[in-house]
Amino acid sequence: MRERALVGVLGAAGAVGTVARACLRDAGGVRIRSGHRRPGPAAGEEVAVVDAADPAAVRRFAAGCHVVLDCTAPAYTLMDRVRRAVLEAGADYVSVMDDGCTQVPPEGRTVVLAAGVSPGLSGMLPRLLAEGLVGPMRFTGAYAGLGGLTAGAAADYLLSLDAGYGTPLAVWRGREVPRALRVDDDYRIPTVERALTGYPYLTAELRRQALVLPLAQAVWFNAFDGPHVLATTSRRRGTRLADADAVAELVRASRLDAAGRRPYQVLHGELDARAPDGTPVHRSVVIRGSDGSALSGVVAAEAVLALTTGRVPPGVWYASDVVDSRRLLASLQHRLPDTVVRFTGNVPCSEAVTPQVEGFL
C-alpha cells in the first residue's frame, strides 16, 4: 500500500492555514505536519515548533515532507527565503502568495505560487469563461472586499503595492497599454448593492492569462467599498513601507470601512467571445464569500492536493493554471456553505455549481 504523502503547513494556526488543514484532513490521503511558532495540540497531526524567518528551522521542518504549504504572513517580508529552504530540504512548495521569484527549482521539484483568492482564484475567472470559445476575446474582471484586515494581511497588502505585481490604470490590448484608464467613482459589481470606487489595475496574473488564452483585451478593477482603505492605499503607494504604524493605519482603515456592515469578498468576471460557429457569446461569473482567508485556505488545499495526486509536473506553476476549476468550485461550496457561485451564458463548468436562491444574493 502506498504511503500517504506528508504535507507540512507553515503558518498552520493562522486564518488561512487553519482552513487549509481542515480541507486536507477531510480530503484524506495525506498526513499533516503543522508548523507553529507556539504550537498547541492538534488531533491527528504532527506538530512542530518552527520560525519561518529561520531558514535552518524551515529546512528541519520540511525534511521528510512531500510538499510544504506556506501560509505565513506577512509573506512579503520573507519573499523567497522559505521557498529556497523548503526546496533545499527536498520537498515541493506551495504558497498562498507569489513570492516574486520564479527561478526553475532543482530537478524533479515543483513550485506552485499564488494559491489564494487574489492572486489565485482571480486568475481562474478568464479561463472558466473562455472554455470552448474562440477569439477575439475581451475580458473584464474585478475584486471587491469588505472586512477588517489582520496585521499580517495588512502588511502583505502594503508591501505588494510596490512589488511589481501590477500596473495602475493600465489595460491589455494585445500588449500592456499604460495609463489608458481612469478611476471609476460609480463602479458596480454584482451582489453589492452600493456603488464602489473601481481602481483599474492590470495584474501580472491577468497579463499571463491574456497571453495564454489569448485575450484581445483585458481589464481588471480593484474595487473599494468605502473611503478609508482607498485613502490609505493612495497615501502609502510608492513609500515601500509596511512598518508598525503603516500596518496599524491600514487595519484601522479596513475596520472603519466595514463598521456595522456584513463582511464580503466578491470576484466578478465578464467575457465576450465567439462560439466555434461564429455566434457571439457573452458569459459572466460572480463568486462571493464572507471570509477571504477561508477562501484562500480552500484554494491552497486544492493546490496541494493537485500536487500530491500527481497532477502537477515539476517546474514553476501558478495555482490558477493547475487547480481543477470544477473540483475547486464544488469544494468552495462544500467547505464554505455561504459561498455563492453564479454563472450566466452557458459556461461548461457551471454544472459543478449548486444552484443558488437568487434572494440570497
Rank of each mutant, 00 (worst) to 15 (best):
G90I: 08
A330T: 14
Q103F: 09
C101R: 13
H228P: 05
A89D: 12
T339Q: 00
S284Y: 01
G14K: 04
A20Y: 06
P200R: 00
V94M: 09
G14L: 04
R188T: 10
R173Y: 00
R4A: 15
M124C: 07
G141E: 07
A52T: 12
P105V: 01
A154D: 13
V192T: 06
P337K: 05
L206N: 06
R288C: 11
Y318C: 06
V247R: 01
G198E: 00
V323S: 01
L230F: 10
I32H: 08
N222E: 13
R33S: 07
P105M: 00
A223Y: 07
D26V: 02
G315T: 10
D257C: 04
P178C: 02
E107P: 12
G108N: 09
R262W: 06
G359R: 10
H36T: 14
A114N: 04
L149V: 03
R60Y: 04
R31H: 10
G226N: 10
Y187N: 04
A246W: 03
F224V: 06
R182G: 15
G135T: 11
G278S: 05
P119I: 03
D186C: 09
D99A: 07
G310K: 05
A142T: 12
V183L: 13
R311W: 03
D324P: 04
F360S: 11
L133P: 11
I287H: 07
V19T: 15
V347D: 04
V247K: 01
F221E: 00
W172V: 01
S331F: 01
S284N: 03
L87F: 09
I287M: 03
A144V: 08
D26N: 11
D185S: 09
L328W: 06
G135P: 07
P280L: 02
R84H: 12
R60L: 13
D243K: 01
L202H: 04
P105Q: 01
P313L: 03
T197S: 12
